[in-house]
Design a protein around this nucleic acid. Structure first.
Lengths: 216, 216
DNA sequence: TAGATTGTTAATCGATTAACAATC
DNA sequence: TAGATTGTTAATCGATTAACAATC
């Protein structure tokens, strides 16, 4: 047990991490707008949150504010970016370049936070060998090599449901540490790999619940 | 206040609704596999949940189980589909047929639960007037007419961030009751419209948090 | 009946919010 | 200093889980 390990995360709620992302984007905007400082109250209002919650979220990681003043926008932005790992570019592998894969490739939201799709994998012979916006499209068998060469740690899975699990296993074998799965199926990994299953249709289903209720 | 209103939802947690969706898909699969009954315990294990939670989720809506037996798969599936409004087809409007819109159009997960994209709106003259898989692509000005004619209640927004808010206002004006927004910006509506902002990049940001932590 | 499993109440846990001393 | 706002503790709220009588 090193001295450093004492400072290890006490057990940060998932929702806190998500809110930190949201705060960061807001701070980015505020900085652009030339705002110098912001109070927890002002920040909270923008997202209909409680100011104590904002302060508590931040307090997990340190004391970033100044009593009587609030938080310095640029300073807090920089701190949060560092905490979230958004202070650097992450090369990302995209697996699957069909409809969804291609849409995710062009999606503006990823690049905005420093996620750069460095390489695309797709076994379709019509696609593999080409390249898109400077990113090569390669067959999946090149994954281990590229993973090492580009130091890839993050992959986005956008293949059909049937192949999602097998693709995932190849990613894990190639040393990928974090996977964002958009395939419409729940995939599994060991616990040393961070995995998020993004379910695009579950939100639609809860919308229809409210419609079905209201429509009574 | 009608007699019926006594049975109105007591205040169902959002997470319960999401889990009901998940149970439903599982039951669909179980039914296909020929499984006749399932206990709350078995159902819970498939999603690493607690059996009491499964029973509690269901108990909000009625008594669907049989003591000593569990739940009849087909019966429970049908009940949940009815509760979630998944016992019928919902015609959906898709606004924006760029990269993301086109991917969502072809996304298998929506159709699987009965959401059918009946009409696409896009003002790009190269697209408007064409049709895709039987769905017409129309300019946005046709929205009020189509909305009425097709009895549209649900819309998916997949336009660029800049136009998302203005598109939303047109949707609301045309009588749309539920909106799923995929544009990388947070949009707002009045309270009579159900709105979900789907943030595709926030998950990636929390993944990078764990990588940044672990990488220390 | 005996065994299994429900529906529900009570206990626990965790997250949100209020309150306030510390301090810029 | 007086006013503002933080960081943090204590109170509240809501969701999850354990426990068990009811009952198939």
């Amino acid at each position: 047990m090193t001295a450093r390990s004492h400072f290890k995360i006490p057990k940060i709620p998932e929702m806190t991490i998500r809110r930190l992302s949201v705060y960061t984007r807001c701070l980015l905007q505020l900085e652009e707008d030339g705002v110098k400082t912001i109070s927890s109250q002002e920040l909270a209002e923008r997202f209909s949150l409680n100011s104590a919650q904002v302060r508590k979220d931040l307090a997990y990681f340190g004391e970033f504010g100044v009593r009587g003043i609030g938080y310095y926008v640029s300073g807090l932005k920089a701190e949060l970016q560092k905490i979230l790992g958004l202070d650097r570019e992450w090369p990302v592998a995209l697996v699957g370049f069909g409809n969804l894969g291609s849409a995710l490739f062009h999606y503006k939201g990823f690049a905005r936070q420093g996620f750069r799709i460095a390489v695309v994998f797709d076994d379709d012979p019509a696609k593999a060998g080409r390249s898109v916006d400077g990113a090569p499209i390669l067959p999946l068998r090149d994954l281990p090599r590229e993973s090492k060469a580009r130091n890839l740690q993050i992959a986005i899975v956008a293949v059909p449901a049937e192949s999602a699990q097998s693709v995932t296993e190849k990613l894990v074998a190639a040393g990928i540490k974090a996977i964002l799965n958009f395939a419409p199926t729940r995939i599994k990994t060991g616990r040393d790999v961070r995995l998020k299953n993004v379910d695009l249709s579950i939100e639609l289903e809860s919308l229809s619940f409210y419609l079905a209720q209201g429509g009574r």
